[in-house]
């Protein structure tokens, strides 16, 4: 039977390195390629950063839960929080020239999530806000 691949931390920035380490270790144990592991870590980092920095604004600091669900052909990451719902919508590639010249452009975080993952979905229910990130293997 597979180990329970869930980790929960307070929604604070030091959780980011813990989550990346958890993904790296799990991928290594499962024989998942380093490149995929890296992309999972980046997507998780960007999504968790959004929750930590914005999800609990005006509320008591809460928690953030990461669950890995590996399958034969894909691995799914489920990020759950209990703050304000925030659906990450797909954005265009950030224009770095625009950023250098003080023109407004979209951020990198959401763009990275959509570039590295094969599927991104989001739903809210009585058990929290759930971001589901899927990567094909």
């Amino acid at each position: 039977m597979r180990d329970n691949l869930i980790i929960t931390r307070a929604a604070e920035l030091d959780a980011l390195a813990v989550f990346r380490g958890f993904i790296a270790q799990t991928c290594k144990q499962l024989g998942i390629a380093d490149d995929v592991s890296f992309q999972l870590q980046l997507a998780c980092d960007e999504a968790a950063t959004n929750v930590i920095q914005h999800g609990y604004e005006g509320m008591n600091p809460g928690s953030i839960m990461l669950e890995l669900q590996p399958g034969p052909k894909k691995i799914t990451m489920l990020l759950t929080d209990f703050g304000h719902p925030f659906e990450p919508v797909e954005t265009e590639a950030p224009d770095v020239d625009a950023l250098l010249n003080d023109r407004p452009t979209t951020g990198f975080g959401l763009y990275f999530i959509y570039q590295t993952m094969n599927d991104v979905s989001y739903f809210t229910d009585e058990r929290g806000n759930h971001l589901v990130l899927t990567k094909n293997l």
Binding site: E46, T49, L100
Partner: peptide
């Protein structure tokens, strides 16, 4: 070994100011 978009923003802002 690793950077997220948070690190990129810092590098981009520094490049902008340096230039």
């Amino acid at each position: 070994e690793y950077t997220s978009s948070a690190g990129l923003r810092v590098l981009l802002n520094a490049a902008k100011e340096a230039r």
